[in-house]
Simulated assay, not measured.
Amino acid sequence: MQALLDAIATMRMPLDAQRIFHGRGGLYPGCEQWTLDAYPPVWVLTSFQPVSDEELAVLHEALSARWQALSPDTPLNWVFQYRHEVQADTRLMAGSVPDPQVVTENGASFRVHLLRGQNHGLFLDMAEGRRWVREHVAARPGIKVLNLFAYTCAFSVVALQAGARHVTNMDMSGGALGIGKQNHHLNGGSAGASFWPHDIFSSWGKINRSGPYDLIIADPPTYQKGSFIAEKDYARLMRRLPDLLMPGGHAMLCLNSPKLGPDFLQDLMQTEAPALSFVERLPNPPVYADVQPERALKVLLYKAPD
């Protein structure tokens, strides 16, 4: 646990939501179970293994000492989450959590919910993907975007901020899209955005009629029964891309599975949509460095022929 304690002792005052410590990457032996995230003004400490009350007390003292140095006139707010299998036990350990809570990233605002569920409303590891979308759209104002598995529509928010003409957000979860609508209103409104609470694989006709698109973003779950199973369903998605993309359009394909490396996506694309050319794999935020990069989040860019 020492590497985590060292990270706490040296961390700076966070302004944007961000990861502070990533033991899951294997760079800190003995700390593989731990992550620490900042969702200002709240810290979220997560363990993927059981933790004793004594360990939590040590971590509380470390967080308290550092917070006293960073912001002595404000209370420490922190949450502990223990994740096991598909469950998450979450506890407020000190202070309070704003309700509603809004955090920022690179000039955009997002609703988050830290005390319920495994996912908090904003995937911090996708920060570089959102940065790329912002820069890509800013260089091509007026483009049309399809955001598949949109969740809370963070990609849509940054695309519209950067000058997209329209973004279609599709996700089976109406609740997630509801938060997505709130995110748009936090950032100037939802003009130019559509929200479709549909199963993608039952909605190709509607998707086609709204296309073609200059940019398609696909950030599906790796395994979610009834929604998407990467080994089975990514091929079904890929073979649709050539007909949905404008000439010269781009596709961003995401995969967050430690068991499936980038070759899984690249081999499938070569089989299912060989006309699309590989551009690059986007880097992850440096804090997410992994001793085995193929295990980490994969964000691959492809381009349709001109």
Rank of each mutant, 00 (worst) to 15 (best):
A17M: 11
H120F: 08
H84G: 08
K225H: 05
R24L: 05
A150R: 05
P274W: 13
L115G: 09
P100S: 12
S277L: 10
P14M: 06
H84R: 04
F80P: 07
K144V: 15
M170Y: 14
V51I: 02
G121F: 07
G26F: 06
G226N: 04
E231P: 00
L244T: 01
R116Q: 09
N169M: 04
L237G: 05
T104N: 04
V51G: 04
Q161C: 13
G188H: 04
H136T: 07
A275N: 11
R66S: 10
R24P: 06
L245E: 11
K303G: 04
Y151E: 13
K259C: 06
A139V: 00
L265T: 10
P98S: 07
A108Q: 06
F195S: 02
A218N: 00
I179V: 10
M172C: 14
V44A: 01
S210M: 07
L186F: 05
S194A: 14
H22V: 12
N77E: 01
S202G: 15
V167M: 06
R240N: 03
Q81Y: 00
M11F: 11
W196L: 05
S156Y: 08
P285T: 07
F155C: 03
V145K: 07
D199V: 11
T10S: 14
G189T: 12
S210E: 12
M246N: 02
K259Y: 03
H198G: 08
K298E: 12
Q33F: 06
I229V: 15
R239T: 01
Y82K: 08
P29F: 08
D16E: 06
F264W: 13
H185M: 08
N169E: 02
N284G: 09
S47P: 01
Y223C: 07
L5S: 06
K298G: 01
A218S: 01
I229N: 15
P274A: 07
S64N: 15
R140V: 04
A69W: 05
P50G: 05
K225Q: 11
D171E: 07
D267W: 02
L241K: 09
L301Y: 15
R111F: 08
F201N: 13
S190Y: 01
P258M: 11
L276K: 05
A193Q: 14
M13H: 09
L63D: 12
F195P: 02
P262D: 00
S96L: 02
H120Q: 15
M11N: 04
G175E: 10
H250I: 12
R66E: 05
Q33C: 08
E105P: 13
Y28P: 15
D89M: 15
G107I: 06
V44H: 03
R281L: 04
Q68F: 12
Y288L: 02
S109E: 15
S173M: 11
S203H: 05
E272Y: 01
G192Q: 11
P242F: 00
G188D: 14
